Computed example of a mutant assay.
Amino acid sequence: MAHEGGRARFHRLRVAAVDRLTDDSVALTLAVPPPLREAYRFTPGQHLALRRTVDGAEIRRTYSICSTAPADEAPSSLRVGVRLVDDGAFSTYAHKEIAVDDELEVMTPAGRFTLDPTPTAAGTDTAPGSEPAPATGHYAAVVGGSGITPVLSIAGTLLERAPHARFCLIRSDRSTASTMFLEEVADLKDRYPDRFQLVTVLSREEQQAGLASGRLDQERLTTLLPALLPVERVAGWYLCGPYGLVQSAERTLRTLGVRRERVHEEIFHVDEGPALDRQAAPASAPTPAPPHSTVTAQLDGRSGAWPVRDGESLLETVLRNRPDAPYACKGGVCGTCRAFLVSGEVRMDRNFALEAEETEAGYVLTCQSHPTTEKVELDFDR
């Protein structure tokens, strides 16, 4: 990853192209100048945080890279997909204002929803907590809407670099007109007809051929997946899109006996409401915050300790004193604010980003964490 051994940073990149994909989505191509190319080397599946300031307020949003990762050289350009969100502060700006030759503030790549098909690991799933893949090198993804974006990079890079790997893509969209990256996915099918399998389900439009319309719920997936591919031999499952679809697919795979370490999830849309997450809710009521707490944070080799104000998350406390602390979504979805909990205890309101192996190892999402002990120590550098 670009930021291993160092924290992700923002740089200004020129917009090289703005391509309209659908009525409510665009693709932005960002040119990477030679001095910054190594910093923007990425693993397929990673995302970029884009930043702008409006009336003195900073806005950050994360968008997944859809480009195929170069095998040897660092990338000279990066492409991301942006879906328009109702009243979206950044997506509206991207659709109505961003033009070629504009400059955007772009963080170096981050994220762990990845598959690295290096020559020495062709057919090997290298995502966190994974095991060596079976000899078949078979991979699969279940995606909804803009969840296609990181999977397009994963599938394209894998098929290009690992000549014996296979990839099955099950995608769900409302209609053909709303489907992002139609041409790019069709190109994969043309280039790798024997190794790339595509199944499209439209929830609000009948198709002349293929599956009947309707939602991809758990009942339907339980019947569909075993009919499409050898579920037990798939080396890595990549689930990406709205929370409901990802959870339905995850429960289906669990029912079908797929091991947890082979399932990787990234949530793109989470409805506001109960503090649900991918982990089981605690059996007892959460521990209340102590009246006075202090957080000590290690960041970029420098350490500081600050009092936590009432109701603040640990990230908010750190940002008041270290504005360079890493974050993007503040919603418990992207994982950019991840830190290692050195000491003390915290309560995480939501977690849609960290795998169980990461939380068990001691990592927390600082944007969702509140202290439950008087002293908490974090390490952003680990």
Rank of each mutant, 00 (worst) to 15 (best):
135 A>H: 07
136 T>I: 07
137 G>S: 06
138 H>L: 15
138 H>N: 05
138 H>F: 01
139 Y>T: 09
139 Y>S: 05
139 Y>C: 09
140 A>H: 04
141 A>K: 05
141 A>I: 04
142 V>N: 10
142 V>Q: 05
144 G>V: 05
144 G>E: 05
144 G>Q: 03
144 G>K: 00
145 G>M: 03
145 G>E: 09
146 S>N: 07
147 G>E: 04
148 I>A: 13
149 T>G: 06
149 T>M: 08
149 T>Q: 02
152 L>R: 10
153 S>I: 11
153 S>Y: 03
153 S>W: 00
153 S>D: 11
154 I>V: 04
154 I>W: 00
155 A>E: 15
155 A>R: 08
155 A>M: 11
155 A>H: 02
155 A>P: 04
156 G>T: 02
158 L>S: 12
158 L>D: 07
158 L>V: 06
159 L>M: 07
159 L>S: 01
160 E>N: 08
160 E>W: 00
161 R>L: 12
161 R>V: 14
162 A>K: 00
162 A>H: 00
162 A>G: 07
162 A>C: 15
163 P>V: 15
163 P>R: 09
163 P>I: 15
163 P>N: 11
164 H>M: 14
164 H>F: 13
165 A>L: 09
165 A>G: 11
165 A>Q: 04
166 R>Q: 13
166 R>H: 14
166 R>A: 13
166 R>F: 01
167 F>W: 06
167 F>K: 01
168 C>T: 14
168 C>I: 00
168 C>E: 12
169 L>C: 10
169 L>M: 09
170 I>D: 09
170 I>M: 10
171 R>D: 08
171 R>F: 05
171 R>K: 09
172 S>M: 10
172 S>H: 06
172 S>P: 00
173 D>E: 14
174 R>Q: 15
175 S>M: 09
176 T>L: 14
176 T>S: 13
176 T>Y: 03
176 T>W: 11
176 T>P: 01
177 A>L: 13
177 A>I: 07
177 A>Q: 13
177 A>T: 10
178 S>N: 12
178 S>T: 12
178 S>V: 04
179 T>S: 13
179 T>D: 10
179 T>C: 12
180 M>C: 11
180 M>H: 10
180 M>Q: 13
182 L>N: 06
182 L>R: 15
183 E>Y: 02
183 E>N: 11
184 E>V: 04
